[in-house]
Amino acid sequence: MKDLKDFNIPFIGLKQGSHLFEYQISKKFFEAYNFDEFNDCDVQVTIDLAKKSTFLELDFNVKGSVNVPCDVTNELFDQEVKGDLHLIVKFGHEFNDDNDDVLIIPHEEYQINVSQYIYELIILSVPNKRVHPKVLDGTMESEALKRLEELRIKENNTAEEQDSTDPRWDKLKDLLTDK
């Protein structure tokens, strides 16, 4: 994880107040995590670190796009991603990240690595179902969509099919009227 050293924020020398950190995330960042679902990535991350006397507040903001295959047609497209995360960093006797919103780090720490939070925020900002915008507006032309249209179940709403019933059930209806 040598590539992720750039995401260490040394907070020990910072004055109290707000500090802004910016990162440009590319596919190389995800290769460090062995994550290969994105073909390409162009995401801008800004972190506003507010240093207080006894704790730190980190506000993450991600905005950009990732190149992914469509779940319907398997065509590649750029999926827009954006997300926010608010994290409070407190100091304690030992490291504890059980709570999603509060991170406790040892008193002797002098820096925090934010790469894991950036990774999770981008991954969770991508929708579960990724659909190409041209599929949504109906302008996509692909072999997969043509084949899906051919295999779609056709609905027959003729009146005689709705009125006719299975003759085996007609005998059961007689039981209801014989009371």
Rank of each mutant, 00 (worst) to 15 (best):
M1V: 08
D3H: 06
L4E: 03
D6F: 09
F7W: 10
F7G: 01
F7P: 15
N8T: 02
K15V: 10
K15T: 12
Q16D: 06
G17Q: 14
G17N: 07
G17L: 13
H19M: 06
H19E: 08
L20E: 06
L20Y: 02
E22F: 01
Q24L: 11
I25K: 03
F30I: 06
A32F: 05
Y33L: 04
N34P: 14
N34E: 13
D36S: 15
E37P: 01
F38E: 12
F38A: 13
F38P: 01
F38W: 14
C41Q: 05
Q44Y: 06
V45C: 14
F55G: 00
E57Y: 03
E57N: 08
E57K: 07
F60H: 04
N61A: 09
V62P: 00
G64I: 02
V66D: 15
N67R: 04
P69Q: 12
P69H: 10
V72K: 12
F77Q: 03
D78W: 11
Q79C: 09
E80V: 11
L85R: 14
L85W: 08
L85C: 04
H86E: 13
V89Y: 12
F91D: 07
F91E: 12
H93G: 07
N96Q: 09
D97L: 04
N99I: 01
D100I: 04
D101S: 06
D101C: 02
V102N: 05
L103C: 05
I104G: 09
I105Y: 11
P106F: 12
Y110D: 14
I112T: 06
V114C: 15
Y117G: 03
Y119M: 13
Y119W: 05
E120S: 09
E120Q: 14
I122D: 01
K129G: 02
R130N: 15
R130T: 15
R130Y: 08
V131M: 07
V131N: 15
H132P: 00
K134I: 01
K134V: 03
V135A: 10
V135N: 05
T139Y: 01
E141P: 14
E141W: 03
S142G: 07
E143H: 11
L145H: 11
R147P: 00
L148Y: 13
L148K: 15
L148A: 15
E149F: 02
R152P: 00
K154G: 01
N156E: 12
N156V: 06
N156G: 04
T158N: 08
A159G: 02
E160H: 05
E160I: 08
P167M: 06
R168A: 04
W169N: 05
W169I: 14
L176R: 07
L176M: 05
